[in-house]
Write a protein that binds this DNA or RNA. Structure first.
Lengths: 225, 225
DNA sequence: AATCTTTAGCTCAGATCTGAGCTAATTAAC
DNA sequence: GTTAATTAGCTCAGATCTGAGCTAAAGATT
C-alpha cells in the first residue's frame, strides 16, 4: 500500500493520491436578499439532499474549468469568474474516502440563473433569511458559504459592484441598495457616494421614469482614472 | 480499499487523481530585511537548486501537518501556524506529472531558524534585496512568495506583529521598525502609535540601557479589550 | 392643480485625523 | 562635565471626514 520511505524511489508520484473535488458557492442577489445557489444531489451520493454544486476534478483539468463545468452540468448555468477560497482537507469530511475539496465562489446576476431555477433540482437559499437551510448543508458546505459571503462583503467594501450584479448604467441609489444587501447593514448615503464616485464613470444620461428626482446614471470604471 | 456505496457507478473515487503537494514560504525578518527561507533540493528532482520547502501529501494527512512535516524534514525547523494561500493547478507546472500544489505561508522569528541556517542546504533570501533569486525559483515558487508577502503585509496593517516575530515585551519603536520592514515603507510615528496602542497591553516596565529616552514596554493584547 | 412622498445633490458645523514641532530623558562622544 | 545625538511622549493648528439638514425635482395621491 505504501511505498518505502527512504530508498531512492521510482517516482515521487507513486505517493497515494487524494481525490480532488471542487465545490462552488454561486452568490446572487434576489428580492433584496443575498442568496446562494443549491442543487439537489443526484444518484451518486446523498441522493436528494440540497448541496452546493460540485464535481470531481478530471484528468489534467484546471480547477476553474472544473468549476465552470460543474455549474454547467449540475445547475445549467454559465459561471463567470470562479475564485478559489480554501481547500478543505479533513480526511473524515466525506465518507466515500479521502477527498480534498477546493472551495470556490462565483457571482452571477439573477438573470443568469432564471432558466436554471425553473428546474426543481435547483433553488436559491437566502443567506440571511434561511440560516437553517445553510447550516444543514452536508460536506461542510456551510463553511464554504460563510467564507464566500465574507469574501463578497470584503470585495463590495472596496469597489462598486465588483461582481457586476447590476446592469449598466445604474443610479447611485441602485448601487447603494445592492451594497446594503450584500453588507447586511445600511450605508450612509453621502459617505457611500463620496467613496464610490471616483470609481465610477458618468454617462451624462439621467434616470427616467423612476420615483423621485431623476439622478445621474453611471457605469463602473477602472480604479485608475 | 474502498467499496462502492450503491449501484449505478462503481465509485466516484475511480476518477483519476492528481498528486498533491504543499509548498511553504517561511517568512522572517533578518537584518532589517524581509526574508524567505529556501532549501537546496535533494536527490529527487531539480537536484541542487534552491526552492521553497515542500512535500507531497501522505495518505490521509492534513495539509497543515504536511507543511509542518516538510519544514521539519527539509529545513529542520518548527513551523508555527501554516496558513493556506492558494492552489496552483497548471497541469504543466511540474514536468514529473499532474501535480497540484497547495501554497502556504508561515512566519517564524529568526531565532527559530538559526540552527537550520548553519546547514549549507538552507538559506534566506531577502525579498526586497535579492529579487533575482526569488524570480529564478522553479515550479512557480516566485508567485507563492509574492502571495505570501502580500498576505503578511496585509496582516501587519491590521494588528501589531501578528506573526509574533518580536519577543515580548517590546517598545513601540521596535514594533514600528519591524512593521516598516514588513511594509517596505516608513510609517508615521504618531499615526502608528495611535493605531497600535489600543491593541497592546502596557507592562508598566520601561526599556533600559537603550539609546535615547526610555520608553514603555508592551505586550500584544487581544483585540477585544 | 395642489399636496404628499420619494430621491438627488449640496452645504456646513462639528468630529476626527494628521503630522510637524515642542519638551523631556537618556546614552554617546568629546 | 559638556555637548551632541537619539528617542519618547505630548500638543495643537490645519486638513479631512461625517452626516444632519436643506433645497430641488420628479412621480403619486387627492
Amino acid at each position: 500500500m505504501k511505498t518505502s520511505k527512504d530508498a531512492p524511489r521510482a517516482s515521487l508520484l507513486d505517493y497515494p493520491r487524494p481525490s480532488v473535488a471542487v465545490d462552488t458557492a454561486v452568490l446572487t442577489v434576489a428580492d433584496g436578499s443575498l442568496c446562494v445557489l443549491l442543487v439537489r444531489r443526484g444518484e451518486d451520493h446523498r441522493h436528494g439532499r440540497w448541496a452546493l454544486p460540485g464535481s470531481f476534478l478530471r484528468e489534467r483539468e484546471r480547477l476553474a474549468d472544473a468549476v465552470l463545468r460543474s455549474l454547467r452540468e449540475k445547475a445549467g448555468i454559465s459561471g463567470r469568474v470562479p475564485r478559489q477560497l480554501h481547500v478543505f482537507d479533513d480526511p473524515a469530511r466525506d465518507d466515500r474516502g479521502w477527498v480534498l475539496s477546493v472551495a470556490h465562489v462565483d457571482v452571477v446576476p439573477l438573470a443568469g440563473l432564471e432558466g436554471a431555477l425553473k428546474s426543481d433540482g435547483v433553488r436559491l437559499a437566502s443567506v440571511a433569511e434561511e440560516p437553517e437551510v445553510i447550516a444543514g448543508l452536508p460536506y461542510g458546505h456551510a463553511e464554504i458559504v460563510a467564507k464566500a459571503v465574507e469574501w463578497l462583503q470584503a470585495a463590495y467594501v472596496e469597489a462598486p459592484d465588483p461582481g457586476a450584479l447590476l446592469d449598466e448604467p445604474f443610479t447611485l441609489k441602485e448601487l447603494r441598495d445592492l451594497h446594503e444587501v450584500v453588507a447586511g447593514t445600511s450605508l450612509m448615503r453621502d459617505t457611500f457616494r463620496r467613496f464610490m464616485e471616483p470609481q465610477l464613470a458618468g454617462t451624462g444620461q439621467m434616470s427616467d421614469g423612476t420615483r423621485g428626482r431623476p439622478s445621474r446614471l453611471w457605469v463602473r470604471a477602472g480604479r485608475a482614472e
